[in-house]
Amino acid sequence: MKKIDFHTLGPLIALIALIVLGTLLNSAFLAPANITNVLARSAFIGLIAVGMTFVITAGGLDLSVGSMAAFLAGLAIIAMNALAPSLGVHWGTILIGMGVAILGGLAAGYLNGALITKARIEPFIVTLGTMGIFRSLITWLADGGTLSLDSGLRTLYRPVYYGGIGWLTWPILCFAAVAIAGEWSMRHSRFGRHVEAIGSNDRVARYSAIDVNRVRLMTYVLLGMLVGLAVVLYVPRLGSASGSTGVLWELEAIAAVIIGGTALKGGRGRVWGTVMGVLILSLIDNILNLANLVSPYLNGAIQGVIIVLAVVLQREKHAASER
């Protein structure tokens, strides 16, 4: 391949530019602690965004993931707190909590997917609805306040976020593993090929004997489980969940997917690009905090400009290569 594929390289170039910028602005930027922080923080959105890549590539959309994360975190905390007196403070309780989060994610993803494929409702509408439902449920479960994990369990559970192998903490390792598995599945597995085919033209997929509904449903279930996994890593960080947990995560995840070069209309998935997109978004935040470049009031504007710019640049290159 002599031609440069800007869809793949564009986000990487942007990422490298940001890293150079960050290093120039503040020497602390490249310190291992800062790198660990940024990567670990990216893990929640990152896990979700990898799942979102599959959903979007198959021509779908999921707006409910942020609320779903808050809801699952609440469920997991309630489950663990309820079991703590009988089971005691040990890993069994925490494993059950993790199971609740992941199985809950599976069920929530199945609910979204079933409404979309079986009841044939637009993904935007279905997930807009479940977004409101999950958000209300967590607020209700927390009684408007905050659900906090039993302090004994917290201490035990804490290393899942903060611990790891050296500076590679568990969230970073998890994110890396899921990203590699996601990239592999998109490129080399039948599932990934089917996802791309459906997003590209679902009629062609149906005529090619692909079970379109099943594959679509699977993308939502996969995303739900990854949201559950993100929750497993999120809960030990602050040990709490509230109505304000995971607000706007869905938009960050979608933005990361699009920055990464996946087409919003579906048909072309780039898991590596998504990883780049997630890191780009995290780095922007980090650099703005580290550098005092502009008034903090303008942080949102800078992010917005970069998101739009990233996508516009891809378009330009793409249009040029068409000619």
Binding site: E196, R206, G267
Partner: peptide
């Protein structure tokens, strides 16, 4: 509209079914 994925390369079209 129902036979080929027009944006995809030949190989992916050939083996899709």
């Amino acid at each position: 509209e129902a036979g080929l994925l027009l944006e995809k390369p030949l190989r992916e079209n050939l083996t899709l079914a």
